[in-house]
Nucleic acid binder design. Structure first.
Length: 244
DNA sequence: AAGTGTTCCAACCGCCTTTAG
DNA sequence: CCTAAAGGCGGTTGGAACACT
């Protein structure tokens, strides 16, 4: 054993950066079937060239089925602000009060939106106390401004693409089929692919144009597809208790 | 239309804590 | 109790997407 802490994995042999659609599916399929008792050994068993920590992070922050996907509501944002006042940057503690939200997500929302808003608030409060006789009240102006900020952020975020996914899996056939149906206002096509557990590989991925038949494309080309909805309708994994 | 600046978030890094032997 | 391994956490960053000039 060398000096210091051993690396969690051999950095030269692991892939880094954004996860591909195939990697996501491998991870999902593996956890659905086997759970995640040991993150360190999981990548090898699942056939992933990733560090165990990376798999854990990907699952917890993005793939696990109990995640509440989508924008934070004003209520959730208020909760974060209040909890941050009591806990500070204890993101996991804050996340434990917001079911379906991850510490990473909350941290990002805080750093990108709420921190700024808090700053505006505290500055406005200073103005409010020095110009308390102004009408309409600074508080109502502030509240209005807050609503506008939130609406702008909502509009911006709602532009991101989303997909509806139908999934079916059968323990008898050793085959999982997932059909990704495009969002109606984005593109007019469906995606279908199958994972064969015997060969431990994907049999096919097809892009189905609604009018023009089927065009086969390689699996790697589906990197942009959001697949998390699939988890909502698949069988629960063999993991007991909480996801984290 | 092109170039530049800004925002946002997924993912990484490394430290701390917990657990198993 | 001690040690090493694994899990958990918070800070940071790379780069894609978007906004502005």
């Amino acid at each position: 054993m060398g000096k210091g802490r051993a690396a969690c994995c051999d950095k030269s042999k692991v892939k880094k950066g954004a996860w591909s659609c195939e990697e996501d599916l491998r991870l999902i399929t593996f956890i659905q079937k086997h759970g995640h008792q040991n993150w360190r050994s999981l990548p090898k068993q699942a056939g992933l060239l990733r560090c165990g920590k990376s798999c854990r992070l990907r699952w917890i922050n993005y793939l696990r089925p109990d995640l509440k996907r989508g924008n934070f509501t004003p209520q959730e944002e208020d909760t974060i602000i209040k909890l941050h006042q009591s806990f500070g940057n204890k993101w996991s503690k804050i996340a434990s009060h917001l079911p379906g939200r991850t510490d990473n997500e909350i941290k990002n929302v805080w750093n990108t939106h709420l921190k700024k808003r808090q700053l505006i608030h505290s500055e406005a409060k200073l103005d409010d106390s020095s110009c308390a006789y102004n009408s309409p009240s600074s508080t109502s102006v502030l509240s209005h401004a807050n609503t506008i900020i939130h609406e702008k952020e909502e509009a911006k975020r709602s532009c991101s693409s989303s997909y509806n996914i139908n999934a079916s899996s059968s323990s008898l056939s050793n085959l999982s089929q997932v059909e990704i149906i495009s969002s109606p206002n984005i593109v007019d096509m469906d995606w279908i692919f199958q994972f064969n557990e015997e060969s431990n590989n994907y049999l096919e991925l097809t892009r189905v144009l609604q009018d023009d038949g089927i065009i086969e494309i390689p699996l790697e080309s589906c990197d942009h597809v959001d697949i998390w909805d699939m988890l909502d309708i698949m069988d629960p994994p063999l993991q007991t208790g909480q996801w984290t």
